[in-house]
Design a protein around this nucleic acid. Structure first.
Lengths: 192, 192
DNA sequence: TTATAATTCGGACGTTCGTCCTAATATATT
DNA sequence: AATATATTAGGACGAACGTCCGAATTATAA
């Protein structure tokens, strides 16, 4: 994510500064002036490259989504079977949560905005859909025949798996004592 | 939640109007003027009864939390054993999600704000904690000895259970086709 | 009835914000 | 070198917002 600022295009500098600032302060609290300042750019440049604030956020989010999906798939490929892949999937989630909580905060912030905006809503449900497909493809293809999950549709299971991590993650983020993170998530492994 | 407006105190009218408006439009998009108008009250009354916008939201959220916790417990009491109580718990969640999605939207909106504000953060993690305790008390007391969840701490399980619903719910809210709601949530039952 | 407190009301204040416009400068094309 | 295009820069604009204040009204208590 980091690169020498001088070698980056103006647009990329804005994009990265926006990602950084928004995920630190929240979209609602992030002003275009502040983002421009962090990017070392003049305010009007933001309207030049991205039509408006919404346009900027859309590109920031898309940046995050693409990067995130790539990394998830890379992790999923590491496992030899469904059980291993679930393990890698969860481990990746745990790492992100403890090492890069900014990305999670951005995701949650964006999720709430998606509830009020059609554009954001479509973008986010597309992410959920893609994640679902990944989980189906890498995990649910060889789920044991005797699993109690066998009766449910792959999509439902995938959404539960991801939903569980999404839902427990925010509890972890808000928990003043962070000890609960490891056990909460690893317990999910037992389900598969 | 509804009562004849004339019989309500001014403060309650503001509170309800705020709940209604914020859960429809989102906190960031809800102006005090608009809330005052919906409540049939003059703007400055909002500063009289609640110091500022944050103070108003805190009371709105507390209203929601209290009502919500009461209803959850009432549902949990209906079941005779853990399995039944899980069933009631999930059924209640499903009902809320389809009949009263406003409450969920408010919850998600508030969750994202909780990430940036200490006050909100404590309020929300208190809700999570209380929910955890309820789940522990009513569901995890008589979980089967042979359950694979037996090795995990009650708190972790409770948080997974609630987290799963929280995480799948937002996917449902954003899903243009709502068909996936029933199966996604009922599948959770199988786990217990 | 009078005095004191609580509530209601209208309006103004200053700030912050996203957006837009125009001029200046750099880059590319012919 | 001349022209056209793309980018950078600074600043202004109006709108919307939360907050605050003082007066008017109503309720309460003595």
């Amino acid at each position: 994510m980091n690169q020498n600022c001088e070698t980056m295009s103006q647009k990329d500098r804005i994009l990265l500064a926006a990602y950084d600032y928004i995920s630190n302060e929240g979209y609602a609290n992030a002003s275009l002036r502040e983002i421009a300042a962090k990017a070392g750019v003049v305010l009007s440049q933001l309207n030049y490259y991205f039509k408006n604030k919404e346009g900027l956020l859309i590109e920031v989010i898309q940046l995050m989504i693409d990067k995130y999906l790539l990394e998830v798939e890379e992790r999923l490929k590491r496992g030899a079977n469904a059980k291993e892949r679930v393990s890698y999937f969860i481990k990746y989630f745990q790492e992100m949560l403890s090492e890069n909580p900014k990305l999670f905060r951005l995701l949650y912030d964006f999720s709430s905005m998606a509830l009020w905006s059609d554009v954001f809503g479509k973008q986010l449900s597309n992410l959920f859909e893609k994640l679902s497909i990944l989980v189906e493809k890498y995990i649910l293809i060889d789920i044991p025949e005797d699993s109690f999950l066998k009766n449910e549709s792959p999509n439902a299971i995938a959404r539960i798996l991801f939903g569980t991590m999404f839902g427990t993650a925010i509890q972890v983020l808000l928990d003043p004592k962070e000890e609960r993170l490891p056990e909460s998530l690893t317990a999910i492994e037992a389900i598969f």
